[in-house]
Design a protein around this nucleic acid. Structure first.
Lengths: 225, 225
DNA sequence: CATGTAAAGATAGTAATACTATCATTTCAA
DNA sequence: TTGAAATGATAGTATTACTATCTTTACATG
């Protein structure tokens, strides 16, 4: 077994399942590196083929185009994160601690998970922060949504929603708050690194300040008046 | 005078100032339509030239590439919105009313402003919601930021920050909350239209539910404990 | 009225992108 | 040993993302 943790993703995402072959797994790991380096706009399958010493046609056998590949990577990340959250909050005593834990998990690029050999989670986290929204902010969202391409994201939102409701079952917008936490965590983390003028959260080590902001925001929203 | 309201944008955004010529203004109005129709990924200068019955080379004389044009449009929108907020909150009696007003302005695509002849604000609003973040979620953010390409966005955040502080001068994250309101407003509005599974805000007319969620979120965050 | 200049139109060309197709070779499993 | 699946090698096509050049139009000024 190459990987202890096996993440199953929709077959609509690929032509040939990349986790089943050597080349497929190499496409995953190397594309994370190259998208990280170039950004999705400048990233091409030709460049990836050169980068990993294979042929363009070979990559097209696995993925229809670079946006499908990106969606695959992002979906993989959401599934992995949901798994992390489920495992790491399971035995926590109360909902408050759970919420703190999950905000922490959302904001912290975890050091490379030894159970997933061909994915560098730290790098993937940065790719998801910068490129993730580009999977759904498109003209064909609805079509892609019908094909269930955003299921892992929805599942993650639902899990977070359940934890939020556990803390305050009266709260009116649990799912909205769930997606807000995820997206806000990402773009504030991006701002603090690259556009410091847009946030008060710079300077701190890692994302500690983003995490504190989110805690403040979430607990004030959830507290009953 | 074609346009009563004149918005001045950085010269780094264009080769030739589009507002000064007939063709330039036509590029603005028609590109909003075509980006709205195709999405920025499928939009090309060639298609735009065909669409507006001119030549590709002509468009390149105004804008370096489609992303610069997009940034121009988005910057225009932020400047226009900041102006709207400043005018429409100026004479309001108290900070609470001002905050409500600005959330309303952020969430509502205002019907076409008669003062800006060559821009359809409703259409532009939808373009900004779907494509806006793609101007800064790139590999070259920092470079573009140095060239001041995001100044209108920063100015808007600062204005919102000032209003938030007016309501509660003790609040620790006013600028972060400002950018959070803007971005959350956009993507929740997008979710409610295209990915209803991700939000509790569907069904309502226009963005009223998004607006109510934001009010709830902002006032809980700002209220002193 | 003549003339100069700025803008726009017309046309062409080039390197890179985004694919698809075909055929040969390797691998490994029955 | 044989056959299927995966990979590699090569080629080709339409489109994209530009740049360059030359002509025409418009209009402003002396």
């Amino acid at each position: 077994m190459e990987s202890v943790l096996n993440i199953k993703l929709s077959e609509k995402l690929y032509h040939r399942n990349p986790v089943e072959t050597e080349l497929g797994r190499k496409i995953i790991s190397q594309s994370i590196e190259l998208i990280h380096e170039l950004g999705i706009e400048d990233f091409t399958f030709r460049k990836l083929a050169l980068y990993m010493n294979t042929t363009e046609a070979g990559i097209y056998r696995y993925f229809e185009n670079k946006y499908r590949l990106l969606t695959y990577l992002v979906d993989w990340y959401w599934s992995w994160l949901e798994f992390q959250i489920s495992v790491r909050t399971k035995n926590l005593p109360d909902p408050e601690t759970k919420i703190k834990k999950l905000i922490h998990l959302l904001g912290t690029p975890i050091t490379d998970d030894v159970n997933t050999s061909y994915v560098d989670e730290k790098l993937l986290y940065e790719v998801v922060v910068r490129e993730g929204v580009k999977t759904y902010l498109t003209k064909n969202v609805e079509e892609d949504n019908k094909a269930n391409l955003f299921k892992p994201y929805k599942d993650l939102c639902k899990r977070i929603e359940a934890i939020l409701l556990d803390y305050n079952s009266e709260y009116k917008y649990p799912r909205t708050l769930a997606s807000t936490i995820i997206e806000t965590g990402h773009f504030q983390s991006f701002f603090s690194l690259h556009l410091p003028g847009l946030t008060d959260l710079n300077g701190g080590k890692e994302n500690t300040k983003v995490i504190r902001f989110l805690e403040d925001l979430v607990f004030s929203a959830l507290s009953k008046k």
